[in-house]
């Protein structure tokens, strides 16, 4: 049996969270999803700080990162992650409504691993999220540092 690793979902909109969870309901992935509500919380989780100070250590297999979030946006979070020696190898996938060139360029410039625009159409959305979960949660081979964390 393949070991399932957690997927960290940074998403401030509860409806999006609900729909995402709904999309992943059928698959085994749903149970392994951890949701954080903004950029600060995302970093706290990854660094085991604040409310996550006592959590079980280890990094998720992927961070699904929304760009537009309160307090600290997704681009800032990505920059922090790539500047943090402990986090910089973490796979990050942008999952956003924005198709803006600026966002795409910034993301790739900062070393994002993938950039997915949330389809307006629900079926498309579900498909996208499912594929992401399967790919990053199952298919993708992680670097040893993260695997062993």
């Amino acid at each position: 049996m393949v070991e399932l690793r957690t997927i960290l979902l940074a998403e401030d909109n509860p409806k999006d969270v609900e729909l995402t969870m709904e999309a992943l309901e059928d698959s085994l992935l749903a149970n392994r999803i951890i949701v954080v509500k903004d950029g600060i919380e995302t970093l706290e989780y990854l660094r085991c700080e604040g409310q996550y100070a006592n959590r079980e250590p280890g990094l998720p297999s992927v961070l699904l990162l929304d760009i537009k979030m309160p307090r600290m946006d997704g681009i800032e979070v990505l920059r922090e992650i790539r500047n943090d020696p402990r986090l910089k190898l973490l796979p990050v996938v942008m999952l956003t409504s924005s198709r803006e060139d600026k966002d795409l360029l910034n993301s790739y410039y900062l070393g994002v691993n993938a950039y997915v625009v949330k389809p307006v159409n629900f079926t498309g959305f579900i498909d996208a999220v499912k594929q992401l979960g399967i790919f990053w949660g199952l298919v993708n081979e992680l670097p040893p540092e993260i695997k062993n964390s």
Partner: peptide, 16 residues
């Protein structure tokens, strides 16, 4: 782009 698309997606999602 971001804010208007999200509610639309939600409408579609919940309809589905």
């Amino acid at each position: 782009s971001h804010d208007l698309r999200a509610p639309l997606r939600h409408v579609n999602g919940y309809l589905e």
